[in-house]
């Protein structure tokens, strides 16, 4: 068949398929009828036949280019993944996230060790030379510590709770997601994020204890600290999972290891998001307020404990492969 006759004979069919694709692309498959879908799939199959014919006989033509585009668009509509339903989303939080964490506990432990290392360095750095704090802490914070006040008093008096909680949890989530993405730098960025955050905490604690503020500082941290640090450590673990896939892919190719491990790593990172939102709200509303100390301590322990119980014990256990 000549190219001209081929186009003349089949063009109405291809154009029909194209208009039908336009409909299904805007409306989605659920709001189309059964005969529509049947016709679409029949047209798709016959067009793949035309594509095969054109590949053999009409190389390098505009028509072949169009048929490739058309078949790709139709394939894209016909082979769809499952729609995200509420059920799948629930199962994601109930089963997938805890499973991902339990599968990579080692990475989480390493991440915790790096964070503790940061704290230890921070503590001993201030012990060694107090001027370290000048480099990494803002002056307002330093001045209020030197004068024997918690810097949080002034900060939280100026900002309303709603604003400061948003500020806190958005910046914390950014840190957590950055720690996850940092895995792609072979873990260097993840290491740096965890270490610096631990270092800051260590410096602040040691400085507070030098100026007689340790009790107040610990009271401030008690409510949200455990949950917040746990969440950061978990997403740091996610970063290390990615880094491990790159550095140590085992019997897989690096690309395959990255794709497989990345999937569980992003689940771990997402576990930290709701935890950090809760921690941010507590840090803004409850920690600076005049609730009794025992309440803050109990709240912190309960929330931190629940977070780890959720990650370690809930959901279906891993299916044996």
């Amino acid at each position: 068949m000549t190219l001209g006759a081929f186009v003349r004979k089949n063009r109405p069919r291809w154009q029909k398929l194209e208009t039908m694709l336009g409909v299904i692309e805007t409306r989605g498959p659920r709001r189309t009828s059964r005969p529509f879908l049947q016709e679409l799939s029949a047209l798709y199959r016959s067009t793949t036949g035309d594509l095969a014919f054109a590949q053999t006989h009409y190389r390098g033509t505009t028509l072949l280019l169009f048929l490739h585009q058309l078949v790709a668009r139709a394939h894209h509509q016909i082979y769809r993944p499952h729609r995200l339903t509420l059920q799948i989303a629930c199962s994601f939080f109930r089963n997938d996230i805890p499973q991902a964490i339990r599968g990579h506990l080692q990475a989480v432990i390493w991440s915790g060790i790096v964070f503790l290392l940061g704290i230890a360095f921070g503590l001993s750095a201030v012990q060694f030379d107090e001027r370290v704090a000048l480099i990494i802490l803002p002056t307002e914070v330093l001045n209020s510590i030197y004068s024997g006040h918690m810097w949080t008093e002034s900060v939280f008096n100026v900002l309303p709770g709603a604003v400061s909680s948003t500020l806190l949890f958005t910046s914390n989530i950014s840190v957590a997601l950055f720690a996850f993405a940092g895995g792609l730098s072979f873990g260097l960025v993840t290491f740096w994020v965890l270490f610096v955050n631990g270092f800051l905490l260590g410096v602040v604690l040691k400085l507070c204890s030098k100026y007689g503020l340790l009790g107040v500082a610990l009271e401030f941290i008690a409510g949200h600290g455990l949950l917040e640090i746990s969440a950061i450590v978990v997403s740091g673990g996610a970063g290390f999972v990615v880094a491990n896939a790159l550095l140590n892919p085992g019997s897989w190719s690096r690309a395959d290891a990255l794709a497989v491990q990345g999937r569980s790593a992003v689940r771990m990172a997402l576990a930290s998001v709701p935890a950090l939102i809760i921690a941010g709200c507590i840090e803004a509303f409850i920690s600076p307020s005049h609730f009794p100390v025992w309440f803050k301590i109990v709240l912190g322990l309960v929330l931190g404990g629940l977070f780890w119980l959720y990650l370690l014990l809930t959901g279906e256990s891993e299916k044996q492969a």
């Binding site: 997601l177 993405a181 792609l184 960025v189 992003v266």
Partner: peptide, 13 residues
């Protein structure tokens, strides 16, 4: 959704 998250959360790197 999970593919989209994977490729876009890694953008900072």
């Amino acid at each position: 959704l999970i593919d989209v998250l994977l490729r876009n959360l890694s953008r900072p790197i």
